[in-house]
């Protein structure tokens, strides 16, 4: 009886919140959103899992431990910076252009990758802090 109902709802709500986070992330460049906010929203989904499902659920949801995410995020962010360097431009120059993706004209930009880096770091940080405090890895 203990936390059964919240756990059920959490299982339903978490994907919703994650979708919300993705939505915020993808449109970050034009409307309010962006890596940091999306990261936090995703982190709160994670928090929900950790709170409701107890330690294991939180970890199960994102199998990767926190610092791997952080590492990945930093790599992403710095990596995109290097692209600029490689092409002779100063560090961290971004490129953007419109790309035809399945008939839909999608505007891709390396800034998005950098944003992904920020996103991953934020989620990774929350993941490692939460799992840590709640006593898991």
């Amino acid at each position: 009886m203990d936390a059964f109902i919240p756990r059920m709802i959490a299982r339903l709500a978490t994907p919703l919140i994650l979708a919300l986070a993705l939505y915020l992330f993808l449109r970050g460049h034009h409307e309010p959103g962006g890596g940091f906010i999306a990261g936090l929203v995703a982190a709160s989904a994670l928090v929900l899992q950790a709170v409701v499902g107890g330690r294991s659920a939180g970890a199960k949801y994102i199998p990767v431990p926190g610092w791997v995410l952080i590492g990945l995020g930093l790599f992403c962010a710095a990596g995109t910076g290097l692209i600029g360097l490689v092409l002779g431009q100063p560090f961290l120059t971004h490129y953007f252009g419109t790309v035809l993706l399945g008939g839909v004209e999608v505007e891709l930009t390396t800034a998005q990758l950098f944003d992904l880096g920020v996103f991953l770091v934020v989620v990774g940080t929350t993941q490692s802090v939460i799992l840590n405090i709640s006593g898991d890895r």
Binding site: I5, P6, I9, L12, A13, L16
Partner: peptide, 13 residues
Amino acid sequence: LIIFLTSPVSSHV
């Protein structure tokens, strides 16, 4: 929709 989904649970909890 979100409110209908979440608020009963939060009151319950």
